[in-house]
Write a protein that binds this DNA or RNA. Structure first.
Length: 480
RNA sequence: GGUCCCAUCGUCUAGCCCGGUCUAGGACAUCGCCUUUUCACGGCGGUAACAGGGGUUCGAAUCCCCUUGGGACUACCA
């Protein structure tokens, strides 16, 4: 039997980090067993669903490399359509079947009646389950005639009186005691079916074999179990993955800050880093490897390695993972990405050798792509000096003014755009041999003179990357 | 309130199912040292956890129960 999994977002907003993680787990599982990954759009909430969001969410998924095998844009005639709003007749057909079998019933109760029912139940200390007259068989005929006459009614499912047991791949055996849920609505009075019902009909018809989703669905799963049974459908395997939480240990939501994938895309996080980090939030690599690409997981991904407790979404570690992925990249790939960063105009004008050298030295110490541009601005293009205490200290050494004088005259002779490493070496040699300066005063003195800073990358690489015009300005300021 | 789920360093986690090899391992963060005549990278090391209480057992992070704490669900939302 081929494995079929699905990710079923509601197009009511941007793709959420938590959603991306579930999508990723489904994707990884399907790849690990050679199954099919289906994308289904759950847009039965007419008010909140917007087609733009569907498009945006798919874009975010694609950015992360979570590519679906089937979906609205890649339909398989056997299973489509893939938008619930386009499957209304299907749901209606099965709802009629359930009514015919006496497993569901039309309900004409008004909101007020329902409210009164609830209040009465709470007053009596009972669970506030549906208690209306329409569930009883003697009213079925009346209900049919009223509906035939065009009156609107919701359709409720008759919750069977028995325990349900779910063997969850992550949670293990979960028991839902009898009476946990009452007769619930499967089709609203406006004719639109609800999630718990559509989901089952779709999973059944789309032959979904494994449902991997957030733990927030765990309690509701009993409703779905009931419907599977009523429909006579085979129950898929369920894997309820623990939730992502914020620093306050509450379910991750907008108020925890950047929780939409598109924000990270805009900040140019590396998609592979994002996937890497998200994978590790609730799943562990069998060899405790912590930096990897999705493609390396085919052989090792399994449902057995999920953690059962919630995981806190922590930007610090994501930052580190992103940095690790930058280090892993080839210089050419990295150059291509850096060239698209805002503020990369100067970078883009440089020779391939310059870019390669710059990227090679800078990628060692950054966490984000934008850091590379920031560092170029700071290390290479900064032409006004900031008088830090450290710089003042270096300038106070008796050898430093002599170095400045010497380099000032040497630099003014340079007519090329860049200083070569050989020229720099020559200056170092001169200061060492002819001026008798060595050790820390030599290196720090030269560094301060040329960069105006007391620390930074290796001068032999940094200085040939810095335009002479910038260096001239720096030295001139120090000479005063 | 009710039902269900969860509980190892500050954080992500390994170990738990199949008790002993756990004076509890790794990673992020943090601190220190080494290396780099600077910074970073890297290397080495430190601080830091089995929520509490009862059992079962020769022996429990691992099995059972209770307590406590946290979370989810409890819609004609998904």
């Amino acid at each position: 039997m081929t494995v079929r999994v699905r990710f079923a977002p509601s197009p009511t907003g941007y793709l959420h980090i938590g959603g991306a993680r579930t999508a990723l787990y489904n994707y990884l599982y399907s790849k690990s067993v050679g199954g099919t990954f289906v994308l289904r759009i759950e847009d039965t909430d007419l008010e909140r669903s917007k087609s733009e969001f569907e498009k945006l969410q798919i874009e975010d998924l694609q950015w992360m490399g979570i590519i679906h095998d089937e979906g609205p844009d890649k339909p398989n005639p056997k299973y489509g359509p893939y938008r619930q709003s386009e499957r209304l007749e299907i749901y209606s057909k099965y709802a009629q079947e359930l009514i015919a079998k006496g497993l569901a019933f039309y309900d004409f109760c008004t909101d007020e009646e329902l409210e009164a029912m609830k209040e009465k139940a709470t007053a009596e200390g009972r669970d506030s389950h549906y208690d209306g007259k329409w569930k009883h068989a003697e009213h079925f005929a009346e209900a049919q005639t009223r509906v035939a006459a065009g009156e609107r009614a919701a359709i409720r499912f008759k919750a069977p009186h028995k325990d349900f047991i779910l063997n969850d791949k992550v949670k293990g055996s979960v028991t839902y005691p009898d009476g946990m849920v009452g007769d619930f609505v499967i089709v609203r009075s406006n004719g639109v079916p609800v999630y718990n019902y559509c989901c089952v009909v779709d999973d059944m018809l789309m032959e979904i074999t494994h449902v991997i989703r957030g733990e927030d669905h765990l309690s509701n799963t009993v409703r779905q179990l009931m419907i599977y049974e009523a429909l006579g459908a085979k129950v898929p395997e369920f894997a309820h993955v623990s939730l992502l939480i914020g620093a306050d240990r509450q379910k991750l939501s907008k108020r925890h800050g950047a929780t939409s994938v598109n924000l990270y895309r805009e900040e140019h996080y590396l998609p592979e880093a994002m996937c890497n980090y998200l994978t590790l939030l609730g799943w562990s690599h069998p060899t405790e490897k912590d930096i990897f690409d999705k493609s390396e997981l085919k052989e090792v991904f399994s449902l057995e390695r999920f953690s059962t407790s919630p995981a806190m979404y922590d930007l610090e570690k994501l930052k580190w993972v992103n940095g690790q992925h930058i280090k892993k990249m080839s210089n050419d790939d990295l150059i291509a990405l850096v060239s698209k960063e805002p503020g990369s105009e100067f970078f883009n004008k440089q020779t391939p050798a310059w870019k390669n050298s710059a990227v090679e030295i800078l990628k060692q110490q950054v966490h984000f792509l934008s850091d590379i541009i920031k560092m170029i601005d700071h290390l290479v293009l900064q032409d006004t000096l900031e008088m830090t205490d450290q710089l003042k200290d270096i300038l106070s050494w008796e050898t430093t003014p002599k170095i400045i004088d010497y380099i000032h005259s040497e630099v003014s002779k340079i007519t090329t755009e860049y200083i070569t490493e050989a020229e720099l070496n020559g200056w170092m040699e001169f200061v060492k041999k002819e001026m008798g300066v060595k050790g820390k005063p030599l290196f720090m003195g030269v560094r301060a003179t040329l960069t105006g800073q007391d620390h930074g990358p290796d001068l032999k690489i940094l200085i040939p990357l810095t335009p002479v015009s910038i260096i001239k300005k720096r030295v001139a300021q120090l000479k005063k």
